[in-house]
Computed example of a mutant assay.
Amino acid sequence: MGKQKIGRRPFVSMSVAGLLAAPAIVSAQSEWPTRQIRVVIPYPPGGPSDVTTRIVLERASSILGQSILFDNKGGASGAIGAEHVKNTVPDGYTFLMTTTAMVCITQHLQPLPYDPAADFVPVARHATSWIGMGISPQVPSNNLQEFITYAKANPGKINFGSAGLATITQLYGEIFNIEAGVKMVHVPYKGSAPATNDLLSGQIQVQFDPTTLPHIAAGRLKCFAIASEKRWPGRLDIPTLKEQGYGKMGGDAWYGILAPRGTNPAIVNKMSRAIGEAAAMPDINEKLVASG
């Protein structure tokens, strides 16, 4: 793959070439897995990367006939977990959960201890999330225009939290600053869940993140816009940013699985099929939509 960047396309429809003929590959495909699989989630528990991975891969483990251990190694915007998996033996029993930022964004903004294209191979894309613009009830606004007016009148006094530096959750806030002409202050966290906890307690005022959606649905947070291409089925009354003239530079946040470079292609293919089968099940989709 050289220096070619891993983009969104490999996660949309996975196919692995060259699986014909070689007896060793056929044997690996038929026998694997013979023991527990480990999936490293490079963010703390409770965030969208953690929740979506557990929902889909717990079902994939049933399809494969082996249990999956979920190993949260959060920190440094996913880099700690990624570097750990990069340095593991590519035996088909350790995988990495990845986000949009980890393969498409962060490398352009700061040095990384891994190369997304050189150190990993794509396995599957298992979820795409809506982004809720969660707002603390303490903010004296009742719609998006009122919020923008309030933010303009109070530059530097509104804090927005993110899952970490150079993540898509930071990117959404910075884009909104530019498009709306406001000056919210970025507060990076070690993951989405800790940021949401502070949003609920009023320590920060805004968060662009899927973790806000269940709290929005429950009425614990305000929400004047969904920062995604389409409205969230959980609250179809909330318009998107684009519908209100903003969010033109936004895009979807997705979650996927990578394997260390050198992993047997037959194993990658079998894991990919199991994840795809699990993600297509109606009850799994219902759980994903409910979580955002």
Rank of each mutant, 00 (worst) to 15 (best):
Q4D: 04
K5T: 05
I6M: 13
R8M: 07
R8A: 04
R9I: 10
P10I: 04
V12N: 08
S13A: 11
G18V: 11
G18C: 05
P23N: 08
I25Y: 00
I25D: 09
E31Q: 12
E31N: 09
T34H: 02
T34P: 04
T34R: 11
R35M: 07
Q36C: 04
Q36E: 13
V39Y: 02
P44Y: 10
P48L: 13
S49E: 13
T52G: 03
T52S: 15
V56H: 07
R59P: 04
S61C: 06
S61W: 03
I63L: 14
L64D: 10
F70N: 12
D71P: 01
D71F: 01
K73R: 13
G74A: 15
G74M: 06
G74Y: 07
A76K: 13
G78E: 01
A79L: 11
I80E: 13
E83W: 00
H84Q: 04
N87I: 12
N87Q: 15
G92P: 00
Y93D: 11
T94D: 11
F95Q: 12
L96P: 00
T99C: 11
T100G: 12
A101T: 11
M102A: 14
I105A: 01
Q107T: 07
H108N: 12
Y114A: 05
A118M: 14
D119H: 10
D119E: 13
V121A: 06
A124P: 11
A127Q: 06
A127N: 10
A127M: 00
M133C: 04
G134P: 03
S136P: 12
V139Q: 06
V139R: 02
N142E: 09
Q145E: 14
Y150T: 13
Y150C: 15
N154W: 09
P155Q: 05
P155V: 09
P155H: 08
I158M: 12
A163R: 12
A163Y: 04
G164N: 08
Q170M: 13
G173E: 02
E174C: 01
F176R: 02
F176N: 08
G181W: 11
M184F: 09
V185C: 11
V185H: 03
P188G: 04
Y189N: 10
K190H: 02
S192A: 15
D198T: 07
L199I: 02
L200M: 12
V206L: 15
T211L: 04
P214A: 10
K222A: 12
C223P: 00
A227G: 11
S228F: 04
P233L: 08
T240N: 09
L241N: 08
L241W: 08
L241H: 07
L241D: 10
K242F: 02
E243A: 00
Q244T: 09
Q244C: 08
Q244R: 06
I267Q: 01
V268K: 02
N269R: 01
N269Y: 08
K270C: 08
K270S: 06
A274F: 06
I275F: 00
D283Q: 04
D283L: 00
K287A: 08
L288I: 12
A290C: 05
G292F: 01
